[in-house]
Amino acid sequence: MPPRAAMGKEESQLLQILAQNPEGCTDNMLQQKMKMEKKDLVTSINKLIKAGKLELKTQGSILIYLLRDAKAAESTKGMGQEEKIVYNIIEKSGNKGIWVKEIRTRSNLQLTQLNKVLKSLESKKSIKSVKPVTDSKKKVYMLFDIKPDSSLTGGAWYSENDFETEFVDILGRQTLTFLQRQRSHAEVQHTDPLAAQRHMMCDIKQVKHFISQLGISKVELEDAEVKQILESLVFDGFATRLHTLGEGGKKQTFYRAIKHQPLTSGISRVPCGVCPIISQCTPGGLVSPQTCKYMKEWLEF
């Protein structure tokens, strides 16, 4: 890229105009503002594109000129043509990343060639590879300084592709204790059930505050993550959710603990209720209640 001083007056003016319009400019707009011949304008634009300062985009059928941000322009500096292409493809994939096979079809490069390019980009610390939690064999590439999407990393619950089961379990248990404590507090303080109900309900903010006070989480949990924990308690049957109109008529979700533990169905209290082969069990058969080891143990317990 030629130094700034070597740039003509027209070029720097062009860059200024583009900097003022981050949305991009069309051909007509530039012509009006620069008051130049179309031929000269095209030469200036070509110069800038070559220097990596300008970008071309199509919006429908209209061509738009965009200023390329300085950092991006810097990052492709000194790259070969193939590297530039691959880099651009990866850049477009954003924080979701892109699979090698996809890069190959889009760039039309041979696999060996592509691997070479990817390796060189990786060594330059321009891109990085990320293993998604859903499929650790399907490596995806993204720009080096981009934070991967939570669908790839699994959010706060994953550390280096491993799910932190214990952490999640402890958070769940603590949150449930918090909800139960709120419930008993409210029941003691308010005799009117409606008032008690209102005070035993907790929204996500309250729970988030409680968790951050606990200090068991090294990272600050997002609202969505706290909600995930609360929802898991609802699905486990320990809590219920209630939607009400909050401030400004917005829908607000509250959670409260259920008074007792969920009841156990009667059939589960006999061995047959949990037996996986009950359909094959018949008196006098190969599997029969008379010879059932578990039934005998249950009867003698």
Binding site: D236, G237, P262, L263, T264, S265, I267, S268, G273, V274, P276
Partner: peptide, 14 residues
């Protein structure tokens, strides 16, 4: 639903 869920919990775990 409550009974079915309970049966699932006892048979397959939480």
């Amino acid at each position: 639903k409550h009974h079915i869920c309970s049966i699932v919990r006892e048979r397959f775990g939480p």
